[in-house]
Computed example of a mutant assay.
Amino acid sequence: MLDDRKTAILAAVVQEYIATAQPVGSGSVARTPSIQVSSATVRSELAVLEQEGFLVQPHTSAGRIPTDKGYRYFVDNLATPGRLDRTSQRQVGEFFSAAHGRLEEMLHQTSNLLADLTHSAAVVVGPRAEAVEVKKIQLVGLSDLAATVVVVLANGSVEHVTLDLEDGDDDIRLATASAHLSSQLDGEVLGRLSELSPSGDPGVDRLSNAALERMRTIAAADHVYTGGVSEVARAFDAVEVVRSVLHTLEQQFVVVSLVSDIVNRGMSVAIGIEHGVEPLSACSVVVAPVVVDGEHVGSVGVLGPTRMNYPQALATVDVVSEQLGHRIEDG
């Protein structure tokens, strides 16, 4: 643990660097109201903080900037989640009060809301279909060769997948298979149903089982929505860093694994390489789980440079995750 003076000086450096993105000098720190010591004393303490790995001096004549270790100490010991300002609180409340329609659209809009509030890239991982009750299922013919399986879930999301047809799979058989699937699946959780009961018609059973297997395939997939990716591009000067970050954010599996791993480790903030994704080593991620009926069904998070405003990001992610959980629970 750092003593009180070093802690105050480190906090001053972190806060100013977050605000300005410029190396922080001893004179600037000494002018901070909470620092009641001379510039010479500040210089001495900055040198110690640098030796201990909390700060780094990018150039000999420049001031200091925080390292990942410095940010971690700041987050763990100094940065408690703040309160959203009234304007942001009102914006979040109005958004979820007006959110209606398909779950997918709401999740996408939630990612844009998070990005707008934090000026960072935002990630929303929605509930998997396999963990949600089925409200309605129907087979709809597209042609003589294909049909669409449409499933409406209790949380408002709609899943659909194409199914190949065989000779004899006419509209009557499709309607019969729809009725059979409805009798088996309505009110059931898709991921918990091991098999369908026989209908007595081999053609209907084949269609029904094929539809169920196709639905299981997409029901196990994660739903990921990102917003504010352009904010990341503006946050970095190095073109290679921007290119690497943007490329990584396009990889859905990496994004889901990143967010899930942080939540599963019981963390709310991962700084730099702590999250284990090398192309995002210049970034921090702030996440919170989305909880419905006591179960973790998804996550929300923001990703930005390590100099992000952690108190504001923590507060925003907490409020949005809580409101999103309530909205999904209300259907």
Rank of each mutant, 00 (worst) to 15 (best):
L314R: 13
A30D: 04
E213F: 00
H100R: 06
P305G: 03
G301S: 03
P279D: 08
I18K: 05
S260I: 02
R128Q: 00
L103I: 05
L46F: 05
V254N: 02
V42H: 00
M215D: 01
S111Q: 04
A233I: 02
G298E: 10
M308K: 04
T32W: 13
A288L: 10
A30T: 03
G228C: 10
Q22T: 09
D261M: 12
S194F: 14
D237V: 02
I137S: 00
G93D: 15
D330Q: 12
L49F: 01
V242R: 07
G70F: 08
V287S: 06
V42M: 05
H180R: 03
A129D: 02
L117F: 15
E130C: 09
T148C: 12
R234G: 03
A221Y: 05
L113G: 02
S97Q: 15
A315W: 09
T7M: 11
E52D: 14
Q251I: 04
A210D: 00
P33D: 12
H100W: 06
V123G: 09
L114I: 00
M1C: 10
A211H: 00
L78W: 13
T148Y: 03
V92R: 08
H296Y: 03
R64D: 02
N309F: 13
T316F: 13
R102C: 13
Y71A: 07
E52I: 01
S97E: 15
A99G: 06
T41H: 11
G101A: 08
Y73A: 07
R206K: 03
V37Q: 00
V37N: 00
F54T: 08
V317H: 13
T176N: 12
P305F: 04
A8W: 01
L185E: 14
V75W: 13
R265S: 15
L114N: 08
V24E: 09
E329F: 09
S194V: 09
V242H: 01
L324N: 01
E52P: 05
I172H: 09
A8S: 09
V286T: 07
L324E: 03
G301Q: 02
P23T: 04
E166L: 05
T248P: 00
A146K: 11
S199E: 05
L113M: 00
N77E: 15
S39L: 11
A221I: 04
Q91L: 14
A115P: 08
Q36N: 12
V259I: 06
D293Q: 12
D186G: 04
S299D: 02
V292S: 13
L303A: 08
A115C: 09
T110I: 01
T248Y: 11
A154C: 10
V290C: 09
A219K: 00
V254Y: 11
V37Y: 05
L196H: 00
D169P: 10
V48H: 02
D171V: 06
V297I: 15
V151Y: 09
V255L: 07
R86I: 02
L10A: 11
R243N: 10
S284W: 01
P127F: 07
S244Q: 12
Q138N: 08
E240V: 05
V300M: 08
A179R: 15
I262R: 07
H119W: 15
S268P: 01
S230N: 13
D76L: 15
Q109S: 10
A146T: 07
D164Y: 11
E322L: 10
A179P: 11
T41D: 07
V151A: 15
G63E: 09
D144W: 13
S260H: 07
M267W: 08
A233V: 10
E195V: 08
D85H: 10
H180A: 07
S244K: 04
R206L: 10
D4Q: 14
V290D: 01
